[in-house]
């Protein structure tokens, strides 16, 4: 794992350099913008006060439409099926309606080499929306719904400004998501999904041609978030796959989850990185 660590450190120093360059180009590092920065800070503080007095982000979402902003959590791990405020989440259909290509992909799946989170890469979409035992924070504006997953290094963005899908973007961990309103339900379409990721940790495949539709609806006076998910993937499945996930409003905090930091300690890394060196220390 030594070479892996080395690459990580180079990455960090590279980021620092990039940030410094950005600051210099903005004039911040040169100290010219002290007054501008102070004014900006005052503006931020004012904005924060307004946000709190009006309910966080309430004034920024589309008027007359539900506001999904806030912290959400399903059931806690170890407490059985995810039932939230009396609503029970469902799973992908079992057995899955696999095509021949899907059966072959599942048969060839090796969790030790083919599951990106094993190497601390993202879980990605649509797996993220199914894991509701980690808190998920949503920020909603007129133009965007931003989703922060506690264990993911990157946020997911759902554009609400009427744009179309891009044609020149490589596949993304969360795909590319655009949303529109159907009454009080936010309908989100996602394409551009990574076909080298998997749908479930058990190895069900997903292709880059998968098209996912989610329907976000608030229930129980805003206490419950229902997400109905429908995935259509003609490469690997003969029929659309559907499930429903429920989240409850929560006051838990999200904390840091820096996966690569603890990777060397895990059982899935080469033994030489762990026990051999430690055994010497004990003698």
């Amino acid at each position: 794992m030594a070479s892996f660590k080395g690459r990580s450190m180079m990455g960090v120093s590279g980021m620092r350099k990039h940030r410094t360059q950005l600051m210099e180009s903005d004039g911040m590092a040169a100290g010219k913008s002290w007054l501008a920065a102070k004014v900006a800070l005052a503006g931020l503080a004012m904005g924060a006060v307004m946000a709190v007095s009006g309910g966080a982000f309430a004034t920024q979402s589309q008027p007359g439409k539900p506001d999904f902003s806030g912290m959400w959590l399903g059931s806690e791990i170890g407490q059985g099926p995810a039932t939230v405020n009396g609503h029970k989440s469902t799973s992908w259909p079992h057995p899955a309606p696999l095509t021949e290509a899907g059966k072959k992909a599942l048969a060839n799946f090796n969790i030790k080499t083919d599951d990106p989170p094993e190497r601390c890469l993202p879980w990605g979409f649509p797996r993220d929306v199914v894991f509701n035992f980690y808190p998920m924070q949503l920020f909603q504006t007129k133009k965007e719904l931003l989703m922060l997953f506690e264990y993911e290094p990157i946020p997911r963005r759902i554009y609400l400004d009427g744009r179309d899908f891009p044609t020149d973007l490589p596949p993304q961990w969360f795909g590319y998501s655009i949303g529109h309103w159907d009454g009080d339900t936010l309908v989100v379409e996602t394409k551009n999904i990574r076909g080298d990721n998997i749908l479930t940790t058990s190895g069900l495949p997903q292709s880059a041609k998968m098209h996912v539709t989610e329907r976000f609806t608030l229930l129980d006076g805003g206490k419950t978030l229902e997400v109905k998910v429908k995935a259509v993937d003609p490469v690997y499945y003969t029929k659309p796959l559907e499930l429903t996930v429920y989240w409850g409003r929560s006051n838990v905090e999200q904390h840091e989850f820096v996966c690569v930091e603890g990777l060397d300690e895990q059982v899935n890394v080469p033994k030489s990185a762990q026990d051999d060196s430690i055994a010497k220390d004990l003698k």
Partner: peptide
Amino acid sequence: QLQLWRAETLPSNLLFRK
């Protein structure tokens, strides 16, 4: 002989909330 063992469990985030 002394042996060093490792017991893996949930991530600290989930343990903290428990």
